[in-house]
């Protein structure tokens, strides 16, 4: 396996449960129990109430494309040879949004559309780190 050259996240004590959950291929994100609303990225308190009353909850890993771009040029050598590729904001079924890469789709504005249903695919990029990518949900 060739060396992974793209930027890797370095979990911190607050965000570690998220990175551990994707490493286990079972994504969890936080919910504010005062409001019942999910949020992302992980925080040490609720961004809605500043309360500590938050918990880690499993999520479906399904959502829709909320916004996207197709990257045709990236001066970062780690990504330069991969263009074109799709970066999207995914809105999870639970309501929170996150950034990710769309895979298994033509990097073409005719093929990617806002509102398109997507599901998480776990990409074990190193022994320590798994990245959540997303792919279109197949009709079958």
């Amino acid at each position: 396996m060739s060396e992974y050259k793209k930027p890797l996240p370095k979990p911190d004590p607050i965000t570690a449960p998220f990175w551990e959950s994707v490493k286990a291929h079972a994504m969890k994100i936080q919910r504010c129990n005062d409001t019942g609303k999910f949020f992302f990225y992980p925080r040490g308190l609720s961004p809605f109430t500043l309360s500590d009353n938050v918990s880690w909850e499993p999520v479906s890993g399904r959502g829709v494309v909320h916004a996207f771009t197709i990257v045709y040029q990236n001066r970062d050598p780690a990504f330069a040879e991969e263009v074109p590729y799709v970066v999207a904001i995914v809105e999870l079924e639970e309501g929170a949004r996150l950034m990710s890469t769309l895979v298994d789709v033509e990097p073409d504005p005719e093929h990617v559309r806002i509102g398109m249903p997507v599901e998480v695919v776990y990409d074990d990029v190193t022994e320590e780190i798994t990245l959540p990518h997303f792919r279109p949900v197949r009709a079958d």
Partner: peptide
Amino acid sequence: PDSLRGQFEAPYGLPQPVG
């Protein structure tokens, strides 16, 4: 890599700020 951008955006290769 342990900043919030480093964890939750940088891994996905969005050129900033244009992307």
